[in-house]
Simulated scan of single mutants.
Amino acid sequence: MNINPHGDASHCRTVLLVDDEKMVLEVGKAILQRLGHQVVTALSGEEAIEQFNQYREFIGCVVLDLTMPGMDGKATFTALRELSPHLPIILASGLSVDQVMSQFESDSPASVIQKPYQIADLSAKIEAVFTKDA
């Protein structure tokens, strides 16, 4: 992974993309890069924590699959929140937004995106996260 620490923050923001399906990671990464973001990927919750720890100073947002074997999305969400309480996390799921949000109590995700991703929807949700912090 080659992160450019001198990239223009308004045009090049790093997203940690987490999904246990390699094809989803590849497509998601291509979409995010086309939208001007740098991307760090992880195939599991455990790998997501490792990648976050390695690139935490660059990562501005996480797109996290809710349903994964092993350390699932909810456990990964909790672990990431412990490492960085204000990190914007967008949960990706085939479930409805209400079904996803009902799994979280006081500490809810920044947003929920339906899978499979639609380019415009993914772009809008990530842009909303980054502009909220600007």
Score class of each variant (00 low, 15 high):
18 V>G: 03
11 H>L: 09
45 G>Q: 09
129 V>S: 08
103 Q>P: 10
56 R>G: 00
50 E>T: 14
53 N>T: 01
105 E>D: 15
16 L>G: 09
128 A>C: 08
113 I>S: 07
52 F>Y: 09
121 D>R: 15
33 Q>K: 05
107 D>V: 04
27 V>W: 07
79 A>H: 06
22 K>T: 13
126 I>A: 02
20 D>M: 14
86 H>G: 02
3 I>A: 00
21 E>P: 02
79 A>W: 00
10 S>D: 06
2 N>Y: 03
84 S>V: 08
117 Y>N: 11
11 H>W: 06
68 M>C: 10
119 I>H: 09
118 Q>H: 11
16 L>P: 03
99 Q>S: 14
58 F>D: 00
111 S>D: 12
35 L>P: 04
83 L>K: 06
99 Q>E: 15
70 G>M: 08
81 R>A: 02
117 Y>F: 15
30 A>R: 01
110 A>L: 02
86 H>L: 10
129 V>M: 13
57 E>R: 01
84 S>C: 10
87 L>S: 04
68 M>T: 14
90 I>Y: 10
10 S>T: 01
115 K>N: 04
52 F>P: 04
38 Q>H: 05
69 P>N: 11
36 G>T: 08
53 N>L: 03
128 A>E: 13
99 Q>N: 14
46 E>T: 12
89 I>S: 07
118 Q>N: 11
25 L>K: 11
67 T>Y: 10
131 T>V: 05
11 H>Q: 08
7 G>H: 09
60 G>L: 05
32 L>M: 05
67 T>H: 13
122 L>K: 15
86 H>C: 07
74 K>I: 10
123 S>D: 15
70 G>F: 13
98 D>G: 14
126 I>K: 11
3 I>M: 07
16 L>W: 10
101 M>F: 14
81 R>K: 04
84 S>T: 10
3 I>S: 03
